[in-house]
Design a protein around this nucleic acid. Structure first.
Lengths: 237, 237
DNA sequence: ACCTGAACACCGTTCAAGT
DNA sequence: ACCTGAACACCGTTCAAGT
């Protein structure tokens, strides 16, 4: 499923107009483009995967890419689908409590998205439809089914669970990577701490508990809460 | 809290180097910049609120804005804080079931973010820390408290609830506004429908129920599920 | 059919210089 | 102190022209 990037091999046919003695340039293919894009993202982050940079990497002009890819959004979606192949789906067939296995699986999803700056962010906008995404959806549904969650609730719950997994990765990864975003978070912490019981009684009452726990603890609790809510909330209304 | 935009009034002092007979240009202030930015967003969407366009609107060069605003992210956060003032917090003090009032309040939040393309998207990354955001957090906490949700769970639950409200708005608004994003969604629907009971048994079993319901129905169910989960999930683990 | 040079219409941010 | 012209280093996308 993961196409190998077209690494320039010395055995390739020589380019007619060779600039210096660069290894021959491979023919463009969709798989090659996506593979190179994934490699570029791994080394420099998604925000650097632009049409122009990618074209440069492939030793061509940006216009050439438009033969294979409709636009930047589609390119980013293809990268995401590719990366989703790294999510560990093994908890589906593992022994143990189905809830904890689902929490583990969703955690792997968040961690995968979190690994590359910008990826989670793009995942919120461009839901992919490739085989890796389908496998992920199927896995979540299988665990909900094993847990006896009614089908109607599982059908809507899977969306929420994946959305939470994605949104958390997006938030965390911008906060960790971007200095400006961390400043913003500190400003929020300060503002919440300064809330008085006159102006904001509940914020003041909860105090530091609003920021308690490690990101991992909070994420695991969040998954458990959404799983429990999905299980307990009938769709009739 | 909402600064008025510095609408050019004819009574303002005339600019020394007047290009044509444009009304005099008001002095730059932080409030004026944010107000103009909000107006620009309302008319053209957040993606058009760039430093350069905003500067043009204020009849100055982009460099001048950097005296008041550190960067584009900070500008977008300021716009968001401003818009959060439009969220209807009245359900907090209304009569009726606390759950349904919380669903209504969160729905107003989603609808506000959804109104302007790009706003929700930026909200996921740059959490604001202004008074309007604090008021929103306080309101959610107040309703959870009224419902007898334990403090420890409310403290973590408020984050999840606002995250879901924001992420849903982001998803919906890109899907509605962007033709390419809608194509992508249709591709996903097609892929899910084509899933066979051999390859993806749970997806096949649920079938069209995966896409059932209006966006409003799904959103309300999602809020209810997360509220129920927050209420029912202890933090000890 | 596939590829591309060149152009169009933009960006954010910095910094030396001016007032 | 505040403001800005000009530059630097980029973008996505299109399209006529080439092979």
């Amino acid at each position: 499923m993961t196409p190998k990037p077209p690494e320039q091999t010395p055995s390739a046919t020589p380019a007619s107009r060779s600039r210096r003695e660069r290894p021959a340039k491979p023919a463009l293919t969709y798989e090659g483009i996506v593979g190179t894009a994934v490699a570029l993202m791994r080394s420099e982050g998604l925000q650097r995967v632009t049409m122009r940079r990618l074209a440069q990497q492939l030793d061509t002009g940006p216009a050439s890419l438009y033969v294979y890819v409709a636009n930047t959004a589609e390119l980013h979606a293809a990268i995401l689908e590719n990366l989703l192949g790294e999510v560990d789906l093994s908890p589906v067939r593992a022994p143990g409590d189905w809830r904890e296995r689902l929490v583990t699986l969703l955690g792997s999803c968040t961690r995968t998205l979190f690994q590359y700056p910008g990826l989670a962010h793009s995942a919120l906008v461009a839901r992919p439809s490739g085989p890796n995404y389908l496998a992920l959806v199927e896995s979540v549904l299988a665990l909900l089914h094993e847990g006896g969650v009614p089908d109607a609730q599982a059908a809507w719950g899977v969306d929420v669970l994946l959305q939470v997994a994605t949104a958390t990765a997006a938030e965390q990864s911008t906060r960790d990577r971007d200095a400006a975003a961390e400043d913003e978070h500190e400003a929020l912490v300060r503002a919440l701490r300064q809330a008085t019981s006159a102006g904001h009684p509940r914020i003041a009452a909860l105090g530091d508990d609003l920021f308690s726990g490690s990101p991992e603890q909070r994420l695991a609790w969040t998954f458990r809460a959404v799983i429990n809510g999905t299980e307990a909330t009938p769709r009739t209304h």
